[in-house]
Amino acid sequence: MRVAVIGAGVAGLVTALELAERGVAVELFERAAALGQQACSWAAGGMLAPWCERESADEAVVTLGRQALGWWPRRYPGTRVHGTLVLAPVRDAGELTRFSARTSGFERLDADGVAVLEPDLAGRFRQGLFFEQEAHLDPRLAMAALAEALRAAGVPIHYGVEADETALDADRIVDCRGLAARDQIGELRGVRGEMLVLRTDEISLSRPVRLLHPRIPLYVVPRSNGHFMIGATMIESDDRSRVSARSAIELLSAAYALHPAFGEAEIVELRADVRPAFPDNLPRIVEDGRILRFNGLFRHGFLLSPALAGQAADRLLASRELPDADYRQRRHA
């Protein structure tokens, strides 16, 4: 069986690699000329935080998302399992109570506990929640690592090709185009997100920090060389225009509230993109003839891709009469 995967965002890359690892002949098609240029995954936070996400997401995000914690470290060694720290300003302590009532898998911290985990935040917060099992990664490096793994596995990635699903020479197709597949998938909508990247040497963090706030919830994800990803707005719109001044002000002031050192940081990047989502904000795999449409990862691209790509691969392989010997061997290895 030969499979064509369309779209080299996180969904397409993970699906192609999952299939290749199971011994399927795969090719990957990407409309952009280079990795990430037109993928909303490029703007992602890269938090593997299923327990935190439960605050506003369905239980399925926890059960499916846990699989990511095993999947990513084996494919991308830069994955850091340092947990997530959730904080709230003193005046919004009620937000922390609410967050803890919705989630599980955390330990409560007092001011000393926060200081032990993140010394640079010492004295700034009186209480926090620590989700020890969660992880984070740099989405761009992780995507590059998957592209490299695909190359090593002999999977061709065709950049700059707008694949025509009716003409592709393949037995099966997995459509991972995100919002670009909207005409083929009813109910898919866009949810705009805006993020920025700051650089400063005045503060260092070891793990993603979420700062709860009734109006402007914020997360800060540390990346290498003093870079911090600050995110992200959630706006019911498919407008892809550049970051609005208001959103930038809100994100920056929330970052400043987390630590004044961010006030002195360089603004390295401002980016807006649109997440594909179904009405329940959960991803789906939809059968459409020889095509499987895998879409709607919403804000959970890196978190839910492994589980969904596994399901897509299971479906494709189940449609074959017998898995080949190679695949069986691998599976029982």
């Binding site: 866009g190 705009r192 498919d238 892809r240 609005s244």
Partner: peptide, 16 residues
Amino acid sequence: RREAGRLGGGQDFWAL
């Protein structure tokens, strides 16, 4: 106001 964006991008949500 917020959903409108600058290009009237809130159509999907309004349709819902």
